[in-house]
């Protein structure tokens, strides 16, 4: 079973993503900010991270960078999920190593299909 870490400071968004993923049989873990996310990743095996950009304590960009720097997580798929929709933001997102970029408000169906796609590419069922 695939396991996905959902990182967002907004509980409603967390709950929405969790529900959709769970309905499709994906196990979920959550974190409310980047630091928490790194803590969870340190003690759990995770197949993919859905990562919000705008969070307190540590934001998504920094978190993504840290993930990429960690040897054991360098290939971990990261899907950025954010309301920041401008081209420049998207560019920055990809340049820090995000695997994909989904703009809020998103279609849960679409997000699910992107998650499945990234998981498949990473060889996770």
């Amino acid at each position: 079973m695939a396991r996905v870490l959902v990182v967002d400071d907004d509980p409603d968004v967390r709950q929405l993503v969790e529900m959709k993923l769970r309905l499709d049989g994906i196990e979920t873990l959550t974190a409310t900010n980047g630091q928490e996310a790194l803590d969870v990743l340190a003690t759990n095996d995770v197949d993919l991270v859905v990562l919000d950009l705008m969070m307190p304590v540590m934001d998504g960009i920094e978190t993504c960078r840290r993930i990429r720097e960690a040897e054991d997580m360098a290939d971990l798929p990261v899907i950025m999920l954010t309301a920041k929709a401008q081209a420049s933001d998207i560019q920055i997102g990809f340049s820090t190593g995000a695997t994909d970029y989904v703009v809020k408000p998103f279609s849960p169906r679409e997000l699910l299909s992107r998650v499945r796609g990234s998981l498949a590419r990473a060889g996770v069922r």
Binding site: D10, D12, V13, L16, M19, K20, L23, M54, A83, K84, A85, K104, P105, F106, S107, P108, R109
Partner: peptide
Amino acid sequence: VSHELRTPLTGILGYLEMFVSGD
């Protein structure tokens, strides 16, 4: 502001879609 408006819309539209699709 546009960012702030998008966030609640995420909740509304996301769940609406799941509702409509029978999830």
